[in-house]
Design a protein around this nucleic acid. Structure first.
Length: 414
RNA sequence: GGAGGGGUGGCCGAGCGGUCAAUGGCAGCAGACUGUAAAUCUGCCGACGGAAGUCUACGAAAGUUCGAAUCUUUCCCCCUCCA
């Protein structure tokens, strides 16, 4: 039984994308017509997007699936200022060149999710630097600033928390919401974009935009937020043994990406299925009762589905093969595993410590030693100690599996 | 501008002249148990070194002292209250 008139809202709500929105009924009506425009903004501090961006991206994908047109706004303007809230990490001000580079990387990340182009439901990419860079202070204040009430702004949760905690809120930072509201105004007047999407933490900023357009132009536009992506135990998602879960395969290999989803918490599997896979809702519903060990198979399915969206279906074969090799005792097929980093052993006198450090499995020799003492290093699946010696006869077809813990592996080749 | 309180390792937060590479908690890593999960328990958790030890670190810089995260001075930054 459909709850909403628009297909998009129905599916978005059922899959768990809906947190809150402005005037829901009106937005529902508005979305019954295809080809509507909605945007979401990202800051471009790195050259890749990561799992933290996943919900918004998945939501835009859904938006497009239902015949609407997603606009991805990158914060070329706001990134230049840098977020002042973390005063200890002097974030380097990005040069135009870096921003351009990051922009390209981010677009690359988005390509598997969204179809860009000129047709009705094709996604478009815009950069707020195009209009923020040349803003003139006084005209801007007169045109936009006059619509903002400080009384109102300090009432927003995002600001209130900041004020109540022991950190300062600079004027620069305070302006963020104004710029974001201005972005929305720009996209509304120039492209007719009537919806802004965002994470639940963006609610205040989004409302600002909605209000600005209302006050300045007397038009109603909509805001829609999705819940933050947390694990069932309330932690932030998105860490692997090797760092953040990047979408760019040069930052995180498809194999490690797959492993990330393969290892998610049992309690999160179904939720992630709804959010990030293309499996149909009834199909996922059937999985909800699966318990215990069988959940492992669901995790594989989850990993397969998400990985094939991001890295392509054809990457799965190799990943499966590598996973099978890495988690089995049999070493005979190791040599044709390409997903695992290789280390060329040139000298048999090298110690395990040398290898751990050189292959970047460990950060320092001390680190490597501690790991060895703790029994966390394996050669060919067996725990080794500091004085382990590499010998030719231990290599199968010239390859040996070498692991740090149960999840970080390399292949040593001779 | 005035008064007061602060700045400690990825984060929170003790320490307030030697016994401090710095208690504790969180996060992280490894081990055991499992299901490549969670929970739990155990160990590790600045760098270099086989080790003894050496170096770098408690906002920055100078100083007092045999010796400073701890005392003094100046500077920077943050918070609260007053103007």
């Amino acid at each position: 039984m459909a709850k909403y008139k628009s297909s998009f809202l129905n599916e978005a709500a059922e899959r768990g994308f809906f947190y809150q929105s402005t005037n829901l009924d009106a937005m529902d009506d508005y979305l019954t017509t295809k080809g509507r425009l909605g945007y979401i903004g990202f800051d471009i501090t790195a050259k890749s997007l990561h799992v933290g961006h996943f919900i918004p991206i998945a939501m835009m994908r859904l938006f497009q699936k239902h015949g609407h047109r997603p606009i991805i706004l990158v914060g070329g303007g706001t990134t230049k200022i840098g977020d002042p809230s973390f005063r200890n990490t002097t974030r380097p001000i990005l040069s135009d060149k870096q921003i351009a580079e990051n922009l390209r990387g981010i677009k690359q990340c988005l390509l598997p999710f969204l179809h860009f182009g000129d047709k009705e439901s094709d996604a478009i990419l815009v950069n707020n630097a195009d209009w923020l860079n040349d803003i003139q202070y006084i005209p801007f204040l007169r045109e936009v600033g006059k619509y903002f009430s400080i009384n109102r702004m300090i009432g927003f949760d995002s600001v209130k928390t900041k004020l109540e905690s022991n950190s300062s809120l600079s004027f620069l930072e305070f302006n963020y919401m104004i710029f974001q509201a201005y972005d929305f105004l720009k996209l509304y007047t120039e492209k007719g974009c009537c919806i802004q999407f965002g994470g639940q933490d963006q609610w205040g900023n989004i409302c600002c935009g909605v209000e600005l357009i209302k006050k300045k132009l007397g038009k109603e536009v909509f805001g829609f937020t999705n819940p933050l992506l947390t694990t069932s135990d309330g932690k932030k998602m998105g860490k692997t043994a090797n760092g953040a879960v990047w979408l760019d395969r040069t930052l995180l290999s498809p194999y490690d990406f797959w492993q990330y989803w393969r290892n998610v918490n049992d309690a999160d599997v179904i939720k992630l299925m709804y959010l990030f896979t293309d499996l149909e809702i009834p199909e996922i519903k059937k999985m909800e009762n699966i318990q215990g060990q069988e959940i492992n198979d669901l995790k594989k399915l989850l990993a397969d589905e998400i990985t094939s969206i991001v890295h392509g279906h054809e990457s799965l074969d190799e990943i499966h093969k590598s996973a099978a090799n890495m988690f089995s005792k049999d070493s005979t097929n190791l040599s044709d595993t390409t997903s695992i980093p290789k280390y060329q052993l040139s000298d048999f006198s090298k110690s395990p410590i040398d290898i751990l450090v050189e292959s970047k499995l460990c950060e320092s020799r001390g680190d490597a030693k501690r790991l060895l003492r703790g029994g966390g290093v394996y050669a060919d699946g067996k725990t080794i100690t500091e004085d382990y010696k590499f010998q030719k006869e231990n290599f199968v077809n010239g390859v040996m599996k070498f692991s740090c813990g149960k999840k970080k592996h390399i292949l040593i080749v001779i």
